[in-house]
Computed example of a mutant assay.
Amino acid sequence: MGIGTSIFLLALGAILTFAVNASIGGLDIDVVGWILMAAGVLGLILTTLVWNRRRQPAATDEPVEYRRVEERRDVAPPM
């Protein structure tokens, strides 16, 4: 889940919880709103953790190996 989806779930949950005063038989809209907000917060946390893990540089214990490349000029070019 991305950041945009998480923010959308948070907003939709807040609207259902705090702004809608309707009732549907057998369904509590406030509870659905709270569940959507919880899913949005969880999605934001997980997305942040994944993005932070990707941004860490890959550390290697081995030094970078440098090689010197020399061009040979004693060979005649092909005809």
Rank of each mutant, 00 (worst) to 15 (best):
N52R: 09
V69P: 00
I24C: 07
I7E: 01
I35L: 15
V64K: 07
I45Y: 07
A11C: 11
I45D: 04
I7M: 07
T48R: 02
L49T: 08
V50T: 13
R73I: 02
L27Y: 10
F8A: 05
A76Y: 03
R73D: 00
L44F: 12
A14I: 04
V32C: 08
A76Q: 08
T5D: 04
M37Q: 04
G4V: 15
R55W: 03
Y66K: 09
N21G: 07
L36V: 06
L12I: 15
P78D: 06
L36I: 07
T47N: 14
I7N: 01
Q56A: 15
Y66T: 07
R72L: 04
L44D: 03
R73V: 05
R73F: 09
L9N: 04
G33E: 05
V69W: 12
N52F: 09
G43C: 03
G26H: 05
I45G: 04
G43V: 00
L49A: 11
A19M: 09
G25S: 06
S23P: 03
L12V: 10
T48I: 13
T48N: 07
D30R: 05
L16S: 03
Q56V: 12
Q56Y: 08
T17V: 10
V50R: 15
R54E: 08
D28Y: 09
A76W: 02
V32S: 05
G4C: 09
V41I: 15
L42W: 13
M37G: 01
E62A: 06
A14E: 03
I29V: 13
R73Y: 06
V32H: 03
T48A: 09
L44G: 01
R73A: 01
F18S: 10
P77N: 06
V69C: 14
A14G: 11
L36N: 01
A76G: 06
V41G: 04
